[in-house]
Every structure is written in C-alpha cells, then in structure tokens.
Write a protein that binds this DNA or RNA. Structure first.
Lengths: 349, 349
DNA sequence: TTGTAGGCGTTATCAC
DNA sequence: GTGATAACGCCTACAA
C-alpha cells in the first residue's frame, strides 16, 4: 500500500498528530521537529490521502464544472481561464459535459455532491431554471458563467449580452443598414441568446427599424448552421444588406455561403459576429464582431466563486466582463451600390 | 449534516450492512428488504459519501486528464471525446492544464495521486520522458494521447503522424511541387512534431527532393505563428510553390498572410495543414489537410485506459486512429504559371 | 510543544 | 439473509 502518515511518524520518531500539524502548517510545532518530519515526508515521497482528509474535514478543494458545447473556441478559452485561476487558488477541477441535457446535468450534480465539491461553475444554458432549484437545495456555492441570472440569490458572471448586441446592431444601423437579417442562437438557449435578442430589438427600435421575426433564422452556434441560415436569408430576403450572427462561427459559416454565391462581403452584404474568437482575425474578410474574453470570464467566475466559498463579503453577485466592438473587414458603410440595390428592391417589393 | 447510510438504515429499519449491500447490488438481499431500503434512499435523497467509499475501497472511478493547449479546436474535441466515453464507462474526470510546464505536470500528477485516481490520460508533449518515469513509479495505469511512445511498457493512442505527414507531402510532390516550405511545430514538442518531421523527410527522399533544414520554420501551432512563418518563407524562399503547416491553424494563418500579400492560393502557392478541424472547411480557400478525429482519439484513449484499469487483456498497447487526406481548395497541381516561375527562379539562383 | 484517542461514512469479515 | 464490528487514513479535542 501507499505511504501513510503513520510511516512518516515512525520514520521521524514522532506521533501522528505531530505529522498532521506539520503538514497543515500549524504554528504549534518546534522548528526542529517540523524539519525532521519534512525530511521523512521527502524521503518517503509521502502523499496525503485526500479521501481521508475530505472525509474528516468535509472540504475538498474541488470545484465542479458543468458545461456544454465546450469545444467551441470561446468556451474552450473559458475553460482555460477557469482552470488557470482555480489552480492559482488551490482548487482542482471536476469537469463534466452535459451536452445540454437535463438528465446529464442532474447526474453530474449528484456525482459532484458525492465528492463534496466546494463549489460549482455552471456553463449550461438550457433548463437552467431546474438546475437552479437543485443547486439551491444542495446549498453549494454556485456561479453561472453563461448569462445573466435574475434570481437575486444566484451569482453569475457574464458579458452584458443585451448591451453588446445593442452596440453591434446600432453600429450596423449607423452605417446605413436597414435591411438586417439575423442568425440567432437556439431557442432552447434561454440565457445568452435571449439576452442578445433583447439587445437587438432595443437597437432596432432606437433606429426606427421595424422588428420582423421572420428575419431571425435559428442557428445552433455551429459553422454549418450559419452556412445554411445564410442560404435561407438570401433566399427569403434578397435585399438584405447586413447579417448579424449570434456568434462568430455562424458568421464565418455565413460568409462562406455568401462567397460561394459570389456575393461580396462587405460590398454587397456586411456580416458581423459575436465573441471575438481568434479565428475571426484570420478569415477573409476578417470579421467585425463583439469581442469578449472567454479566459477572463473563466477567471472572474472562479474569483467570485472563491469569495463565496471563503465566506468573504461579495459586493455584487452579478459581474459583467467588458466587451468591445471590433470593426474589421466584413462590414462597411452602405455605399452607392448597396443603396441603389436597396432602392430597387424596395420598388420591386 | 448530510444524510448518511445510518439515516437510511434507521428509516428502513435495517442495519448499516444491509443498506450497503443494497447500494452495491449484492445479491444476498431479500427483494423485500431491498425495496424498503431503496424507498428510504429515495425519501431521504441519500447521496453516498464518495470520500468514505474511496478511503475504504481505494478505488475512485476517477480519471485524471493532464493536457496543454486544450483550447486548440483539435484538442478541445479530444477532451470532448474523453469526457463522453469516460462518462459512458462510469468515470468522472479530474482535469488539469499544464501549459506544457513540467512543474505543473508534476504538481497535477501529485494531486491526482492523492485523489486515488484509477488512471490517467496524458496529452502533454514536452518533457514526456520525465513524466513517464514518474508515472511508472506511481504504478497508475496511463495512456498517452499525444503521440507515439516507443517505451513498450507505455500505452498510447495516436494518429500515425509519420505516415500522415508522409501522405500529404507525397500528395504535394505528385502534384508537381518541388519547392516546398514547412511550418513545423515547436522544437519542444517531442512527439507529434518530431514524428511529422520524420514523415516529411521520408516523403522528400522518396520524391528525390533534397532536404533543406532552412525551409522548416518553427511555429507554435497558433494562427499568429503561421502568419509570421509565412512571412519568413516568402521573404527567404520567394520561389516556394507549396507550404505544409503542421496544423490547420498555422496553415490558416499562412493563408491569411499570403492573401494580404496578394499571393493567390492555390494558384501561386498551395497550402496544406494537418488535423482537419472544422474551420478548415469554411475559410476561403478551404483547406487541404490531413483529417483525424480528436473525438475518436479521446474515445479510444479512454477505451484503452479502461481495459488496463480493469485488468483486461490488451492485445496492443499502441493504438492508431485513422487519418485521411482531404483535398480542398487550397491546393492544386502545379500549372504552367508556377512551372514557368520555378524555372525562372532556378535560373536566378 | 507533543501524544492519545475518538470519529468522519463507508465496506468487508465475521458471526448468527 | 442479516447484523455487529473492525478497519481505511486523517484531523482535532483533550491531556500531559
């Protein structure tokens, strides 16, 4: 079997409790004794048995992460930020993917409870209300990192989706675009997508453009769905002059479709995305988008969670990370060509 | 405190041992009794205390994953595959990122050992030799999922990097390319990159093209490094007709640079990548590449690890996943324009 | 400053 | 079939 504290105690010629004290940096130990113990630990390559410690102390230094669609670049960076900051703070991570299915989420929640996790980061967006109830019941500190949760008891870290969506739509309107089509997220996504939708509506109203639900094509945040959504848009609304996709991947999928149809971006149609994943800088044309940092989102989430776990005063349990409009090559101001085309189309309709 | 087996036993009117038996599906329990217990479990929403169980049984149903650069799409999918198959097999995941630093790797290895993980998946490529020694010492089942490990004791799952690199370089040669430049991986990466390098050399030799180490520019698998490597290539070897980047992201970065320099891909220079990430289908021009499935790599890794953990017979501890050359828009056969240019350049040199 | 002993919630070995 | 009971390895009063 493995080396235990007993072995260390024996080799160091002290008692179990002394070893324990040394390992836990108790100040009540003579330096000389501590040194003996440390040497023994070294010599035996002693590793503490975490289960025994957790059983005794009921705290695990373990944080649970339940996500969905984490292979998307933005979320992959979120996970990276979570990991880095968690390590920094002395936590290890239990990681589970729910595929957005409630059953799997429940399942992981149970497993994590059994492991006595100190806290949990939730990145799922479907069924989050049901999750909320379970989590509240569990009395485990939790932070949502996937959108704004209105429940005042629940902490969350997120970009301000409403404001960000507003910003980018307003930018399009200012550039003269009136015929804007949208590739929204899945209707199942009750957080980010719904919030972005609100931001869009707000911006349209401010620009006196009438809201037309027909012009919102549902995607699922994949390249492919952006591609096929663009096809629908071109088919149904040929006079579209700008497309706002609710994430960068769908925007890139859309651009690809337009290129294949010989529709020039941005000369004929401007395209904007959301997230600001690195890839958007390298596609041709590079992508105008709302940039937010997944890494920072992860970092801030753990920071907040850590405060809650440690019982520190939390001044605000709703944290927003910054976002920024980044204008690149995929958008332009409406030029004469577009305006002419729009006029023509208006006549035709 | 939480509900324990004791509470369940009391409510069900049986002893601790009986509850334990029911929970572990022991057949030695009368159905009637089992039912009583199950009802009590249900009613109290009892969750087992995993630490206590692990302490007693010394098995955790926990698999450790240590990775680096997991935000890259290929590896993000690898993680997804790992997670899905691990869940399927009843394991939970402890996930740590080493940033490719030996110290962090060691650190996570220790943490994981303390948590009594049943097995470990290693995805890091630097210092893997040192890791190997530690891991062997730990006597924990381990599977490398980042390249071929020659040590016969060590299990690994990987694409056949040598063959795959060979395939794509041969493809370029067959298309008539003789002036090929390379964007290789970091020299620190002792696994995939070195293997791909071997494959390249082999293919060059077969095609009677002389090996020129100058033509291998080092990148670090990021878009940015592909971009700047392409700049160096164009600067130093203006008659280059094809570029092979050791992953898709660097290839895409290179394409971006070429586009900015008004160098047409593939008309003037063909570009190929490696991995086959989804994004390669959507860039313009779409990317010719070697396709391998990160998801499958993850799945197979867990499959193998599981066998080892369960002590099943493993017929071969070196597993290869399939790869496939996918030809898209970023390559062509050398046409007259290129050939003429090459002739001219040859004269000049 | 150090040692002794009890208990955390399980599982496993005995009896009955 | 079922029930006591002794570990598993650690932490923490309490004693010394």
């Amino acid at each position: 079997m493995d080396v235990t504290m007993k072995d260390v105690a024996k080799l160091a010629g002290v008692s179990l409790s002394t070893v324990s004290r040394v390992l836990n940096d108790s100040s009540l130990v003579r330096e000389e004794t501590a040194l003996k113990v440390k040497k023994a630990v070294e010599k035996l390559d002693y590793q503490i048995n975490d289960s025994a410690r957790i059983l005794r102390t009921n705290t695990s230094n373990l944080i649970g992460v339940i996500g969905a669609g984490m292979e998307h670049p933005f979320l992959a960076n979120l996970l990276k930020g979570i990991e880095a900051e968690a390590r920094e703070k002395g936590y290890a991570l239990i990681y589970g993917d729910s595929d957005g299915e409630f059953e799997k989420e429940q399942n992981y929640l149970n497993i994590m409870k059994q492991k006595k996790i100190d806290g949990i980061i939730l990145i799922t967006t479907n069924y989050y209300n049901d999750l909320l109830n379970i989590v509240k019941n569990y009395q485990i500190p939790v932070v949502f990192a996937s959108g704004y949760i209105s429940d005042p008891e629940i902490s969350c870290v997120t970009v301000d989706n409403v404001a960000a969506a507003y910003d980018i739509v307003e930018y399009l309107c200012r550039a003269g675009h009136k015929e804007i089509a949208f590739i929204k997220g899945p209707d199942l996504d009750l957080l980010a997508s719904q919030e972005r939708l609100r931001g869009v509506k707000l911006a349209l109203r401010m620009s006196k453009i009438k809201y037309d639900s027909q012009k919102f094509i549902e995607g699922d945040f994949t390249f492919e769905s952006g591609y096929s959504a663009a096809a629908k848009i071109i088919d149904r609304f040929p006079n579209t002059s700008a497309i706002f996709a609710f994430n960068d991947e769908m925007a890139i999928g859309a651009i690809r479709y337009l290129a294949e149809q010989q529709i020039k971006v941005p000369e004929e149609i401007s395209v904007v995305g959301f997230d600001g994943i690195e890839m958007g800088e390298y596609v041709k044309p590079s992508l105008t988008t709302i940039k937010q940092s997944g890494y920072e989102l992860g970092l801030k989430s753990i920071e907040l969670l850590n405060k809650i776990i440690e019982g520190q005063e939390v001044e605000d349990n709703k944290v927003f990370i910054p976002h920024k409009l980044v204008v690149r090559e995929s958008t332009n101001k409406l030029n004469k060509l577009n305006l002419k085309k729009e006029v023509e189309n208006t006549k035709l309709n």
